[in-house]
């Protein structure tokens, strides 16, 4: 992993317990990361809009982790909108859901999710899963360069 490079992850998740678990799991990795958390698809779209404004100090995410079942537009509609927006459709979106329903998995890949992970209830299991996710996305794969000012990312 490139040392000194900040990796920006946007977590779209309405459950405060799951938010906390993911924050813990990411903090345990050898990755200099900035985790931004929003609770709904609408808030996530708003976040992306603001990140795209000229001179914005909001960090454009390198990777989006997306829950499916949320109030409001929900994960699938958010995914559909992001993947139809030329400003954002190059951002990989990984589904992190409790659901292992065949239809959810199929719909997500059809809408170009870049992975589908089932939530783990235990912090230790989640840490191990996130370790593999982080190694794949931030050590093995090259991501699109983030040209946003990193001033807002601490």
């Amino acid at each position: 992993m490139e040392v000194g490079k900040m990796s920006v992850v946007l977590l779209v998740e309405d459950d405060p317990g799951d938010q906390k678990l993911m924050r813990y799991a990411l903090s345990q990795q050898e990755l200099q990361s900035h985790l931004e958390i929003v609770g709904t698809g609408e808030e996530a779209l708003d976040y992306l809009e603001r990140s795209a404004e000229e001179g914005s100090s909001i960090c454009r995410p390198h990777l989006i982790l997306l829950d499916l079942n949320m109030p409001g537009i929900g994960g699938k509609e958010f995914l559909r909108r992001v993947k139809h927006d030329p400003r954002f459709f190059d951002i990989p979106v990984v589904i992190v859901s409790t659901s292992d329903a065949a239809g959810d998995i199929q719909d997500s890949y059809k809408m170009k999710a870049a992975g589908y992970i089932q939530k783990c209830p235990s912090p230790e299991d989640l840490r191990r899963v996130v370790q593999k996710l982080v190694r794949y996305w931030f050590a093995t794969s090259t991501l699109v360069k983030n040209n946003t000012s990193m001033a807002g990312c601490r």
């Binding site: 292992d100 329903a101 065949a102 998995i105 199929q106 890949y109 992975g115 589908y116 992970i117 089932q118 899963v129 593999k132 996710l133 190694r135 794949y136 996305w137 093995t140």
Partner: peptide, 22 residues
């Protein structure tokens, strides 16, 4: 580790139509 351990996959039936999960 990412694709075959932690990610769920689409499953295909014998007619090669996607039918299910990993």
């Amino acid at each position: 580790d990412y694709w075959f351990v932690i990610c769920k996959r689409v499953e295909y039936d014998h007619d090669s139509v996607a039918v299910g999960a990993g």
